[in-house]
Amino acid sequence: MNRTLEVIAGSDLVERPRRSRWPARLDYLQSASGLVLALFMWAHMGFVSSILFGKNALWVVARTFEGYYFFGHRYPVIVSIAAAVVLALVIGHAALAVRKFPINYRQFRTFRGHMAMMRHGDTSLWFAQVVTGFALFFLASVHLYIIMSNPGKIGPYESSFRVWDQHLWPLYLLLLLAVEFHGGIGLYRLSVKWNWFGGSNPDEARHGLKVLKWAITVFFLAIGLATLATFIKIGITAHPIYGERYVPTWQQDALPGHGGQAAPVAGQPATTSQAGGAQ
């Protein structure tokens, strides 16, 4: 009877002689989900920063992920599904990582006191990871939900309107800072936790990893800030045509009167972009 298991588990016991394997699985999954998310963030930064190479570059990247170059039509739902998967990963990782947070004021105060007294780099970095991780519960969720629920609205103008006219730039600025510090510190910690690159001299390797970690953080922060600034700039200059979709230069020439069909969305009548936009 299932009730038997409930009663045993409810009494904080298990119906077998050996210890549960779940703590091992949870530890592994926390590291694995963090690794996947951190690597995704690097790739994500690569895609988003394509705006630095011009509006057309971002347009091509965005359409690629909507399957335009594979199917001949845009399927923005692909991006929504991807965002949902990432959101699920974020929630899963948060659930696993929150086990390590200081769980009450006594633990919080003890750790803060320990950190201030020790002045030990990796100990302080862990606290930065807790703070940024906590911030990401909210920042990443908002961002992912917006991307998920606005299919097809990723593009040089579309994204810029979101950043500037829809006032999301403060959220993106905080998100950028939180992600880059959290992910960078997390990857460094994963390397030392599992001794991935230890080699014959783990202390030297750790020092190298730390230097690399900071270099990568600075690199991605620089790219991220430049990207955000570019979106803000486009958002400000394109403000008068708020709501209009971006049409890549090679399609603009082919279209009469500067309006016309940009990459069609599958299953929808071709939309017409008009000068002046949908204000």
Binding site: R19, P23, A24, L26, H120, D122, T123, V192, R206
Partner: peptide, 13 residues
């Protein structure tokens, strides 16, 4: 094999 053991370690070093 639990969070009071090796899985409690957060690699603060």
């Amino acid at each position: 094999g639990d969070d009071d053991g090796v899985f409690g370690c957060m690699s603060l070093l």
